[in-house]
């Protein structure tokens, strides 16, 4: 008799695609990620397209960029403090107001959430293709312990082993 291979079992893992570069959506992604860590789940965040701009370090620079890459770099938010809201942005007033309300309501700021995520061992994977499209280089991204640049196969391999997969 032939032994049938047992089907792969989804692990207690959360794999989340962070696509949006909006402040509110990245906040939602980080809250879910940190919450999942409290459930002892391993968390993988796959940052792609507009979300990659959130991972730029405001003070880091990278040399040897082409004109179009420089233009993208100039147009896109330089880091998580510069992100805009998906609604009610009002030329920057919206983001400033929501940050004020968050502080008053004791909601952690985005940089605080990234620090917590780092402490919890939450994995951040940055889509290499998106980095190329936006003209971002690895050396201009934030310092974060569990962070790597990779491709869609990494997300798929993680997602295949995850009980929860989300796209934000």
């Amino acid at each position: 008799m032939q032994a049938t291979p047992s089907p792969a079992k989804a692990e207690d893992q959360l794999s989340l695609v962070v696509f949006s570069g909006d402040l509110d959506k990245i906040l939602a992604a980080m809250i879910i990620a940190i919450g999942a860590s409290a459930f002892d789940m391993k968390v993988n965040l796959f940052f792609t397209f507009w979300a990659t701009a959130a991972l730029r370090a405001p003070k880091k620079k990278s040399k040897g960029k082409k004109l179009i890459e420089k233009m993208f770099g100039f147009m896109l938010p330089k880091g998580m403090d510069k992100l805009a809201l998906s609604k009610m942005q009002m030329g920057g007033m919206g983001a400033a107001m929501i940050k004020g309300i968050m502080k008053k309501q004791h909601v952690a700021s985005l940089p605080e959430m990234f620090a917590t995520a780092a402490e919890l061992g939450i994995q951040i994977n940055i889509c290499e293709m998106s980095m190329k499209l936006m003209g971002f280089k690895r050396e201009e991204m934030i310092d974060y312990p569990n962070m790597q640049v990779c491709g869609v196969a990494t997300f798929l391999a993680d997602a295949a082993d995850s009980k929860i997969q989300l796209f934000i």
């Binding site: 809250i31 940190i34 409290a38 917590t116």
Partner: peptide
């Protein structure tokens, strides 16, 4: 008391 969601959960954990 000084933290909002997901703070209390994380603190408990």
């Amino acid at each position: 008391r000084a933290v909002a969601c997901p703070g209390p959960l994380l603190a408990a954990k």
